[in-house]
Design a protein around this nucleic acid. Sequence first.
RNA 1: UGCGGGGUGGAGCAGUGGCAGCUCGCCAGGCCCAUAACCUGGAGGUCGGCCGUUCAAAUCGGCCCCCCGCAACCA
Length: 494
Amino acid sequence: MKFYITTPLYYVNDKPHIGHSYTTVAADALARFRRMSGDDVFFLTGTDEHGQKMLEAARNREMLPRQLADINSEVFKGLWKDLGISYDRFIRTTEPRHEEVVRKVFAKLLENGDLYRGEYRGYYCTPCEAYVQPGDESECVCPDCKRKVNEISEPSYLLNISRYRERLAKHISESSFVKPDFRKNEVLNMLAGMPDLCVTRKNVDWGIPSPTPEGYNIYVWIDALLNYLSGIGYLSDNALFEKYWPANVQFIGKDIIKFHDIIWPVILLALGLPLPGKIFAHGWWTVGKDKMSKSKGNAIDPRSLMEEYGRDPFRFFLLREVPFGLDGEYSEESFKKRYNSDLVNDFGNLVNRSLNLIETRMGGVIPDRSPSEELAGLTARTFDAYSRKMDEVAFSEAIEEAWKLVVHLNKFLDSSAPWREECLNREQVLYDVMYGIRNVLLMMSPFIPSSVLAMWKMLAFPASPEEEGFDLLKKKLDGGIRTNRREIIFARKK
RNA sequence: UGCGGGGUGGAGCAGUGGCAGCUCGCCAGGCCCAUAACCUGGAGGUCGGCCGUUCAAAUCGGCCCCCCGCAACCA
């Protein structure tokens, strides 16, 4: 089976914060899970580089928007590298190939009447040089800069949302397109009241020119959304496109629901393309009860957390701490607690104590047996529950399922006490524990791939979890292996 | 105001009619192979309020109070 997954394109007017990492790590974990399940995965991410805010940000730094985009897209790439993100393609909206697709799509929509020339009536904030929607009619101030806005009316091109409103509403109610489920009503309401969308900009000089006589630029969101098509070869590499489209899952933050759950499918319907399987909107990370934002200065920098704890604990925390889809509260304390209690005490210590027993009681060689029926059964049931949760994109619950095996193995060691002289089936017990650990490692690999690989090598299991995939769960562990030197993979933090 | 989601032991949550559960924290004990780790047991809640339906309600209905989200381009 093919599996096409995307993150949003991140806007490069500023540096990445924890939220960008969140979406990307989530997509990466799912991509890795599908690969290990045997799917042919295409994982797309990238950067969104046009638009008014880029112009401003570049001006503030006294550089050209292109220069700022070059710098910041590298910053994102660098972070993804350090986070171990296994994307297949990193797209930038300033790539000529992408720009060409956007122009072609625009022309096609125009031709079919899905875009039409009309009047845009609305409010315009001169200082921000942007169209805005004032919060309160009586106030008429820009929601961004809080200054007065002017009502204007000018010719522009509009996306004909009305034409697809009913079809889309029907699809949303009848499918699992909008995820999580509790967003459905919200989106349907939004859709019902959504006017046709203005898709050209008169005063923005950093963008893709629209193929119309007036010399407008194309609205950045139209530009950005189309990356999901151009990124897999729409209108350029037909074989690739046919292979992967439609996307199976598209991850977004809850702030961009309107664009992905309404405007995006309208464009696709207009192009006659099938819609993605799911648009999954996750929640925000908050600090205390406050929303994390640049203006408040309380944004969490992923770099500092990674430097202190390492890449994998950061990935683990993001996906374990909070149910995907809901908001979550970040605190250093909760991070440390997760780290110490889950990764150090439960998991790390299990591997460490088990390997120590292999070293001291088995001369460093994993005995060759067959797994007990009980443990093999438990593994199968655990994996079953785990995969179901992964299919539901319920990461924290999937990890919880795998953790049941970790807890079981710790208990099993305690109750069978293979360190005692009286323990008669020591070989079987230790074999079972190593077999169980191997299976836990497989299930944890999508979340903490490098730590898992380090443990895998330490235990001298053949190949790697990613090469083996989940098929290995059905097979016994071939013993007779001499293990490598014992190391602490997750060191306790004070 | 409209639509939606919530209010359950110290914290965070699960639980859509039948003895109120989980994780963390706390207390006590066990074990001692291990990263002061792991295991077991315990304390702690009249499930926001009032009224009602029912043999039986956290769970259904009504009214009320409080919090949050979306209606407004922050992952």
